[in-house]
């Protein structure tokens, strides 16, 4: 019974984390599902978002302005990956890895701005000292400063904005680029521009998630983005596996990534309660992603007939 109570007590925290990672997962959905690019920039741009937000807040900025700065920094990171990929002709995966690697150095520098040290791996933003948008401190409070309130608002607004954008001419050309680049070019769509734009938007969202995460946990750390792409993919895929039959609408598909992220963190909370160490989680995450990516592949390979129908229906 104690176990159950403790688990229930930690549920709000899991949902809070899930909502923040839902933002990151929606960013990854754009590159992974819409553009068909596995963008590994994410591990770095998440930290960049966290670092920039934390830095700006410690410099006395308004937290909204700090979050905006974080988003812009993430968009810049996405642009760099897009530049490597389209202008320099580097394969997308490698382009992302290069940016991510470069960002490691950049992020250490960002967090040390205004400090006597030249590089810094942690930058604290305590809710005692600064005005923050979200903080884990209030996660169980029945009040408006509960981070869940703002995160739900954020999620709804971001889904609405993305839904609108992907219905516009520009958004449609982005979807066409991911669906069939040959056709897109034949219809006069600049596929390189679309890829860069998608990477910019995606990493802007990831950095926003990073900026929120830093505030939520009270610090920005250099390794907070390690494996972020895998966690975000896990969220996207869990959401799809569980909800793709019910959620056909684009907005609902985005929502399923958020729900996937929440489920992911609830499960993580559970296994931590069961005695797993937090350092074991990367292994667990990798396995979850591997398994959920394997299932559709094997289904296609060994039961191709029934699955092909399903794929085209869900596509």
């Amino acid at each position: 019974m104690d176990f159950f109570t403790a688990f229930l007590n930690s549920l709000p925290g899991a949902v809070g984390q899930g909502l923040i990672w839902g933002m990151i997962a929606m960013g990854v959905f754009i590159t992974f599902r819409i553009l068909d690019i596995a963008d590994l920039t994410v591990d770095g741009s998440l930290v960049t978002g966290g670092a920039v937000a934390a830095l700006c807040i410690t410099m006395g900025w308004n937290p909204w302005a700090a979050l905006l700065a974080a988003v812009l920094a993430g968009m810049l990171a996405g642009f760099v990956t897009g530049f490597f990929h389209t202008v320099c002709g580097i394969p997308a995966i490698l382009a992302g890895i290069l940016t991510q690697l470069a960002l490691y150095s950049v992020n250490l520098r960002i967090m040390a701005i205004g400090d006597s040290a030249k590089t810094k791996a942690t930058l604290a933003v305590s809710v005692d000292k600064y005005d923050l948008l979200v903080s884990a401190r209030y996660i169980r409070d029945m009040a408006l400063n509960n981070p869940l309130v703002l995160m739900i608002v954020f999620t709804v607004v971001v889904i609405a904005l993305l839904y609108w954008f992907f219905g516009t001419e520009m958004g449609s050309s982005l979807r066409a680029t991911g669906a069939n680049p040959n056709m897109a070019r034949a219809q006069g769509i600049n596929t390189d521009f679309c890829k860069v734009l998608g990477l910019v938007v995606s990493n802007g969202m990831v950095a926003m998630g990073g900026g929120l995460l830093a505030q939520y946990q009270g610090s920005s750390t250099i390794d907070m983005g390690r494996g972020a792409i895998a966690i975000a993919l896990a969220a996207v895929i869990i959401g799809e596996v569980l909800l793709s039959k019910v959620f056909r609408n684009f907005a609902l598909k985005l929502l399923s990534s958020v729900i996937g992220a929440i489920i992911y963190y609830v499960v993580i909370t559970l296994v931590l309660r069961l005695g797993l160490e937090s350092t074991d989680l990367k292994l667990l995450t990798a396995l979850v992603v591997a398994i959920f990516l394997t299932i559709p592949y094997w289904k296609g390979k060994y039961f191709s007939k029934s699955v092909r129908k399903e794929v085209s229906q869900n596509a």
Binding site: G167, T168, E169, M170, S172, S173, R175, A176, Q187, G188
Partner: peptide
């Protein structure tokens, strides 16, 4: 949607509805 993409061949694609 495919037809709408084709209808805009040779035009700029902005933030008007697709």
């Amino acid at each position: 949607e495919n037809l709408a993409l084709a209808a805009r061949r040779g035009q700029g694609r902005g933030l008007r509805v697709g």
